[in-house]
């Protein structure tokens, strides 16, 4: 069972550099061969200053940018083997390009326990706000994770 005293808890911020190679790698893993994600030259030929962010690139910020994320989730009492992803949401507030330095701060916004005939589950709402090197808020990521007991 989840410890309700953790609601509202913020985790230490993490910093990452937006990397062209990670955008390209993500696009290729998804099976998207759009050339603008493959090189700066292609992106510029299409009128972009550099390789644009992939729509789901923020997931790489969370997993690669925050090397402590797994431990941070574990510290909430979450068994990662029993986690299901419930929802994911991005608000893209300002342009993000390779070379930008982002700082992310994760917060446990809310958590509920739900009991059903099949057992009980915890539902956690997490938010990560990302600011860039100019202290501009550029991205908000929200996530709902479901932990089956």
């Amino acid at each position: 069972m989840f410890d309700k005293s953790k609601i509202g808890q913020s985790f230490p911020p993490f910093t990452l550099e937006v990397e062209r190679g990670k955008i390209r790698e993500l696009a290729l893993a998804i099976g998207d061969d759009n050339p603008i994600y493959q090189s700066k030259e292609n992106a510029q030929a299409a009128g972009y200053p550099d390789v644009p962010l992939y729509p789901t690139s923020p997931t790489t910020f969370a997993f690669w940018g925050n090397k402590n994320m797994v431990d941070q989730l574990a510290s909430l009492g979450i068994n990662l083997m029993r986690v299901l992803h419930g929802e994911e949401e991005y608000e893209y507030l300002a342009p993000i390009y390779p070379g930008d330095i982002l700082t992310g701060a994760m917060r446990l916004v809310d958590a509920k326990s739900r009991h059903t005939q099949g057992g009980s589950m915890d539902i956690l709402n997490l938010e990560i706000d990302y600011t860039n090197q100019h202290d501009t808020l550029v991205l908000k990521a929200r996530q709902v994770v479901v932990v089956r007991e």
Binding site: A29, Y54, E87, E89
Partner: peptide
């Protein structure tokens, strides 16, 4: 799977047009 949907949207509106994107699994 959200990435697949992102590919469809990127193809449709272009890569820098998205302002919000949310899904339920």
């Amino acid at each position: 799977i959200m990435g697949f949907v992102g590919q469809m949207l990127s193809d449709y509106v272009g890569p820098t047009a998205l302002r919000k994107f949310d899904v339920r699994f």
